[in-house]
Write a protein that binds this DNA or RNA. Sequence first.
DNA 1: ATGAAAGCGCTAACAC
DNA 2: GTGTTAGCGCTTTCAT
Lengths: 341, 341
Amino acid sequence: MPQTEEPARRATAAEVARRAGVSPAVVSYVVNGGPRNVAPGTAARVRDAVRDLGYRPNRAARALRRGSTGIVGLVIPRVANPFMAELSEAVQDAAARRGLAVLAAGSGNEPDVERELLQTLPRHGVDGLLVATVLGHADPPPGTAPGLPTVYLNAPFPVGGRCAVGPDATQGARLVVDHLLAVHGHRSVALVTGESGARRAGARELGWQQALAAYDAAPGPVVRVGWDRRGGSAAVAALLAGPQRPTAVFATSDAQALGVLHGLRAAGVRVPEDVAVVGFDGIEEAAYAAPPLTTAKQPVAAMAEAALDALERPGGPVEGHQVLGLDLVVRESCGCPAPPD
Amino acid sequence: MPQTEEPARRATAAEVARRAGVSPAVVSYVVNGGPRNVAPGTAARVRDAVRDLGYRPNRAARALRRGSTGIVGLVIPRVANPFMAELSEAVQDAAARRGLAVLAAGSGNEPDVERELLQTLPRHGVDGLLVATVLGHADPPPGTAPGLPTVYLNAPFPVGGRCAVGPDATQGARLVVDHLLAVHGHRSVALVTGESGARRAGARELGWQQALAAYDAAPGPVVRVGWDRRGGSAAVAALLAGPQRPTAVFATSDAQALGVLHGLRAAGVRVPEDVAVVGFDGIEEAAYAAPPLTTAKQPVAAMAEAALDALERPGGPVEGHQVLGLDLVVRESCGCPAPPD
DNA sequence: ATGAAAGCGCTAACAC
DNA sequence: GTGTTAGCGCTTTCAT
C-alpha cells in the first residue's frame, strides 16, 4: 500500500492555518484568491499545507457564510425523455465549465410535482433554478421561490415577467415543413402535436401553418397526442382513418415522429414512399430510426450556455425571451436519398 | 394580486421562535420531531408560525451543523445514453421517496473525468456516492473520498472491497441467447460487445457462451465496438464480412443492437428474416425499433432501490455484490410474430 | 417542558 | 500583509 492514507476526518481551515503558521483568514485569502492580497511566500506555505493535509473547504460552511452553494437546480419532465436527456447533458457540461454542479429533478410530467419541486429544490440550497417544462409554460408561471434566480429553459414563448431562453420553434417548424413542400412537392402535410392547451405546441404549429401558407397549401389534418413515442404511435390510426390520407406528416417532437414511424410500419405503410415523416428536436435516436428521420435540430448546447449566462448575470436574470435558431437535418424519412456510403 | 406576497428574505428559526413566543430550540424540536418532546399546544403555535412565515430550514446551516446534506451524488458516463437516463430516473425516483436529492454528473466516458468527479462531487457536500460506469469497474476501483459511503451501481461483477449492486448480466444474456437457440433454432449466434478490457463485457459474454454451450453450438464471431448505437452500426461490416454469416446476433447493449439494426437496414439485410437480432438492457427505445427489439430488461427500479438501501444502511454500505435478475422481453427482431393488434 | 448557549467551518470587515 | 473576530442559521447539550 504505497498510497498515502488520507485522514478520515477532513482537515479544516484552522488546521491548515496552524500548519502554515498563519491565520485562518490568510488561508481563506489564498484558497479564494482574495479578497485581500497575500505575500507570495506566505501563499506558497499555505498551498503546501493545503496539499499536505488534503484540505477541501467545507461546502456547507461556505454556503452558510456566503449564502451560495455553487449548485443549480434543473427541473425537467423526465430524464428518460431523450430530448430532455440531451438537454440535461448540455446543461451539465455548461455548468461544469463554470464550476457549478447540477441538481436535477424530474416532475414526471405532473404539474403538481413540478410545482412542488420548485419549492423543494430551493431548500436544498441551490443558487438558481433552470426550469424546462414540456407541458408548456403556464401564464402566469408557477411561482418559484421569490428571490431565487430562475430561468425558463426550452421555452418557445416568453414567460410572463421571467427570463426565458428557448428554440425559435416557429422557424424550426417552418424549416422542416418547407423542405417537404419545396423539395418534395407535398401539399397535404398532417400535423402530429401535443395536447392542446400547451402553449409550446403553438409555436411549432404556427411554423407548420406559415410554411403551408407560403405555398398556398391547405392545412392537413391535426392530431393531438402525448409528446412521447407512444403518442406518435397512437396518432397513426387517426392519420390513416381520415377521408383523404395526407402524403406527409410533421410531428412536433422527434419522439412523436419515432412513434409515427413505428405505427406506420405496423400498419404496413411505407415511409417515405407512401407517407413522408419529419420530426423536430434532433435527438441522436432520430439518426438510427428506420428510415433515418429528417428533423430540425435544436441548439441544445447554445441554449444551455445562454441559460447559465442569464442565471449568472450579476443582478440576476433579466426578463426577456432569447430564441436560438434550429438547423435542418436531412435524412431519408422525407424522401431524400440515403447518403452515398 | 390576491396572492400573499412571500417575504423576499427567508424567515429564520429565530423569527419563528419569536412569533410563537418560544425559544429557537423548541422550533427545532417541532420541525425535526425531536430530540425532545414539546407540549401539544406549544407545538401547534410553532407550526402556525412556521406556516405564517413560510419558514424553511436553511439547508446549508443544517448541513453544517449535522454534517450531512441530504444529497447523493451520481456518477454516470452520459445522461444522453438511454440506458443511463433510465437508470438515473430510477435513482431520482427512489431518492425522492427518501427525501434525498440527486446531484448527477456525467464523465463523458472519460476515466480521467470520472476520477476527477469522484473528487469534486464530495466537495459539493454529498452524503454518499453512486457510481455507475460503462467502462467497467477497474480493479482496484478508482478511489473515492475516504469515509464517503459509496456504492457501485450497474456493476456486473463484485468491485474489490466495495459495495456493489448490478444486474445478473450472465443470466440476462443467457436468457436472450437461449431464446434464439431454443425457440428459433439458431446455431450461429454472433456477439457484438464492448471493447475488450471492460470487465462488464465479460458477464454478458459469459452468458452468451454458456447458452451456446448448453446447446452444443459453437461460438459465432465476436466483434468488439463501442457501447453505443454508432458502435453497433460499425459492427455490421465485420458481421457481414466473415466467411459464413451468422444467422443471429446478440448485442450486449440495446444501443448496440439498435445500431446493428440500422447498419443491417442500410446494407439491405432483412431482420429477422435474414438475421435475427437481440439486445440487452430493455430501454424504452427498443420497443420502437424496426423491427421491435427482443431484449433482456434490466431491473432498474430495483437496482436503484437496492443501491440507496445500501447507501443509507446505518454503519455505511457493506462490501459485497448484490445481483438482480433480468426479464426476457420478446418482440419481433428475434423472429417471433408481432402481437395481434 | 422549555430555554440559554455553544459551536459546526468558513469568510470578510476591521484593526494593526 | 496579516491577524482577530464576529457571525451565517441551525441543532443539541445542559441547565432549569
